Structure formats: C-alpha cells, structure tokens
Simulated assay, not measured.
Amino acid sequence: MFPIQRPRRLRSHPQLRRMVQENVLTTSDLIYPLFAVPGEGIAQEVRSMPGVYQLSVDKIVEEAKEVYDLGIPAIILFGIPADKDDDATGAWHDHGIVQVATTAVKEAVPDLIVIVDTCLCEYTAHGHCGYLEVGDLTGRVLNDPTLELLKKTAVSQAKSGADIIAPSGMMDGFVQAIRAGLDEGGFQDIPILSYAAKYASSYYGPFRDAAESAPQFGDRRTYQMDPANGQEALKEIELDIAEGADMLMVKPALAYMDIIWRVKQATNLPVAAYNVSGEYSMIKAAALNGWVDEQRIVLETLLGFKRSGADLILTYHAKDAARWLNG
C-alpha cells in the first residue's frame, strides 16, 4: 500500500528501467518478407506499401545480403509468376520464381534462413488457394485435390534449397500432406512453419497489390477463419501439431494479440506473428503525414507482439526496426 509501495522507484533511471524490462525485442526476432518477380534489374514499389518492392531475383539477392548484414536471421519469399493457370504451375515448377530466388539467395548468403510461402493464390488464374469446382464462382476450394498441389510445391521448394516450408492456404490436412511429401522426398529435416490460425481479414488488402493475388470472384471465407472466433484457433493449432507442424503462426497480429497469447499458452512450439500489410501501411501512412513518430510506434508495436507471446515476427518493418535496434 502507498506510501510503502512506490512502483515509480523502478522507473526513475533509463538503466534501471532496462534492468527490470520484462520483454526485449532483438533483430533475431525478425523475419523480412520479399516479393520475387521475373526479369532483371526490377525494383517496383508497391503503391499501397511505401518502402516495399516487387524485386527481380538479382535485386532479391541484394536485399538478402543487406538483411543478413543487419542481423536479421531470415526472409520469407513470395512469388509473382509470369503466367498463371488453374493448376498453379508456377508454384511447383522446378524453375518457378520462388525456386529460382531461393537457390540464388542460398548461393549468395548461405547462412541466411530462407522461408518459403507455400500457397497457390499467387499462381492461379482465379486467385484462390487451390482447385475450384468447374463453374463455381463462390471461391469454395476443393480441399483434398489441392493437398496434392501443395505437396508438390513443398517438395519443389525444398529441392531449391528452402530452409523452412510455410504453408498458408488453410486447407484441412495440409501439414500432414506436406510432411508426408517432404519425408518421402528425403527432406525429413526441413521444418514446417504452419499458418495455423490465419483469419479472413481485411488487413490483407495491400498484400494483394504486392503479390497480385486478389481473388477474381468470391472471397476466402470458406477456408480462412472467421475473425469472431478464438476457440477455433486452438482447434486448428492442435490439429497442425498432431500432423507434424514444427512452428505455428498467427495472422494477422495487431488485432489478434489475444490469439497469439492463447496459442502460446496452449503449446510449447515456437509461435510466429505476421505483422501484415494493412498493419504496416496504416503506420506508414500516418508517419508520412507526420501524425505519429514512426520509429517509436513501430518498436512499440513489435514489442507488443513479443509481450503477447510471439517468438518470431514477420514484418515489413524488419529492416528499419533492425537499424533502430542496432543504432
């Protein structure tokens, strides 16, 4: 009771505050997303994501070197193919854009961890994450046939040198199918970072500009989770763990810190939070208008993810955050 208890005593000096700080954000917590496109010498800024670019493979390699030099341990690669079709050929072809970029990065920066997004929406003509029933305009993906595509994609990505496979399509049984495919292909040691709790969120809008993956019709609510649900996230992670997931992801992060916390409490596996495009773009827009202090609000947001239980943070702020943390 006051005046005996005075919590402000431990806030009186910067070094003292440092000593009693409960959570610490470091560059080792960060993963930087990159978007690979065909061609050479291409660095096309994404209109709705200032500071984020679609990059040709040579530029991806330059970014990878910079990321590694900043102390960020990993990138995650997304691909935009030259051509799209209903079989998502660009996702699983051995010369697909992500496969080519992965090999190039691993040759140039072998100690940088390359995570690959294992999904199909960037590669299908309709923009959905798998096979659709002929004539179906609702966006209801055929689950089991799609698993075979994901399996082929994961094996192809592993062959190209990927360190971690990250399936994001929210198909039932996708972790089990991918784990079986990797094991059969001799990639038993490649871990799976599952997008275990991925919500049908409005925060993804700018990403669809970056990855050119907006659905041509319908939406993704038949396979991504309802934002109203929390208990369902625990069911999803339980299933993915049973199927062989090595790490779990919650996406988005900012409006879902309660889910990050609940997932962390329910498992001993590493938990990743995806600080998604809409979250990034809101801060960038406010900062460009002078409404917020970008450095302080970014670091506070990322620290909030750590406090909520995230072990890893996928964020477009990663390079800036690393500079601020290092500086």
Rank of each mutant, 00 (worst) to 15 (best):
K152R: 08
D69L: 14
P73K: 10
W92K: 04
P73N: 01
V141H: 01
T153K: 06
C119A: 03
H126C: 12
G51V: 10
M49D: 07
V134Q: 02
V100R: 13
A125T: 14
A64Q: 04
K84C: 00
E133V: 05
V100C: 08
Y131V: 12
K65D: 06
T89W: 00
Q44R: 15
L70V: 10
V100E: 10
C129K: 00
V155S: 06
A108H: 10
D69T: 13
D144P: 12
A64T: 06
V98C: 01
D136R: 01
A82R: 05
L70P: 07
P73E: 04
E148D: 10
L137G: 13
T89C: 01
I113K: 11
E122S: 09
D117P: 08
D69F: 06
A125K: 13
A64L: 04
K152T: 10
I115C: 11
D163S: 02
V141Q: 04
E133R: 06
A64G: 05
L147V: 09
K152V: 09
L137E: 10
D86I: 09
Q44I: 07
G41N: 07
Q157I: 12
A108N: 03
A43M: 15
G96A: 00
K152F: 05
H128L: 07
A101S: 08
G51R: 02
H126Y: 01
K59T: 14
G79M: 09
A158I: 03
C121P: 08
D144K: 08
L149H: 12
G51M: 10
D85S: 01
I165Q: 02
G96K: 01
A125R: 06
I72V: 14
V116L: 09
R47A: 15
L112E: 02
A74V: 00
H93I: 07
G135L: 15
I164Y: 00
V52N: 05
H93T: 12
R140E: 13
P81K: 08
A154Y: 01
T118I: 10
Y68N: 08
P145R: 03
L55M: 13
A166Q: 05
A88P: 02
V100L: 15
Q54Y: 07
H93Y: 11
V52P: 15
I42L: 14
R47P: 05
K106R: 10
A125V: 04
E66G: 14
D136K: 04
L149D: 15
A104H: 04
S48L: 15
A91V: 05
A162C: 13
Q157W: 11
D85T: 01
L149Y: 08
A91C: 10
E66Q: 12
G135V: 11
I80Q: 09
I72S: 03
D144F: 09
A82I: 01
D111W: 03
Q54N: 13
V155Q: 06
V109C: 05
P81F: 10
D111Q: 14
G71E: 08
I75N: 01
K65M: 08
D85Y: 00
A154Q: 02
K59H: 12
F78S: 04
V116M: 12
T102G: 06
K152E: 05
L132C: 03
D94A: 05
V98I: 12
K65A: 11
A88R: 08
K159P: 05
T89P: 02
L120V: 02
G130N: 02
S156G: 07
Q44S: 13
E148A: 07
H128V: 14
D83Y: 05
Q99N: 14
G139K: 00
F78G: 00
T138V: 03
A104F: 01
G130D: 03
L142G: 01
